[in-house]
Amino acid sequence: MSICKNSERAPLPVGLYPHARQVGDLWFLSGVGPRKKDSKEIPGVTLKEDGSIASYDIEAQCHSVFQNVKMILEDIGSDWSKLVDVTVFLTNMKDDFKTFNRIYADYFKENQPCRTTVEVNALPTPIAIELKCVAEV
């Protein structure tokens, strides 16, 4: 049996899926981006009139996505220290990986989950980073 949950504080998913699903002793989080709840604002992103990205600040997006993951974990009854696996999707590995890696190290000093980082061509909204996480209950 599994349980699906959503956070009241994190941005709504952009499709028909929950923020998290519990299976056994693990929580599987759906992809989490840096968007703000109840807003079209994406921290660090400036959009053109056509909705495409004019410029972005990967540092601002990193802090925001980590905050969104933290809120979801807290709202489902888990926490940051219980993360066991993180998959990172970056749209520009060449320019953003070094900054992302530095910020990641600040957030994961105590807990060091397994991690995979991949570059993708695009994400569903005009963002430069998304995380897919697994945490203990």
Rank of each mutant, 00 (worst) to 15 (best):
L16Q: 11
Y17P: 04
Q22F: 07
D25M: 09
L26K: 13
L26R: 14
S30V: 00
V32W: 02
V32T: 06
K36I: 07
D38Q: 07
K40W: 04
K48E: 00
K48A: 07
D50K: 03
G51E: 08
S52R: 05
S52C: 00
I53Y: 03
S55W: 00
Y56Q: 03
Y56F: 07
E59T: 10
C62Y: 02
Q67N: 13
Q67A: 14
N68Y: 04
V69K: 02
M71C: 12
E74C: 09
E74T: 12
D75P: 00
K82Q: 13
K82Y: 10
V86T: 07
V86R: 06
T87S: 14
F89V: 11
T91H: 09
N92A: 08
M93W: 13
M93R: 15
K94I: 14
F97W: 11
R102F: 11
I103W: 00
A105I: 06
D106N: 13
N111A: 14
C114T: 15
R115W: 02
T117V: 15
E119D: 00
V120S: 02
I127S: 05
E130Q: 13
L131S: 05
C133V: 08
C133G: 10
V134H: 05
V134F: 06
V134D: 04
V137M: 15
V137Q: 15
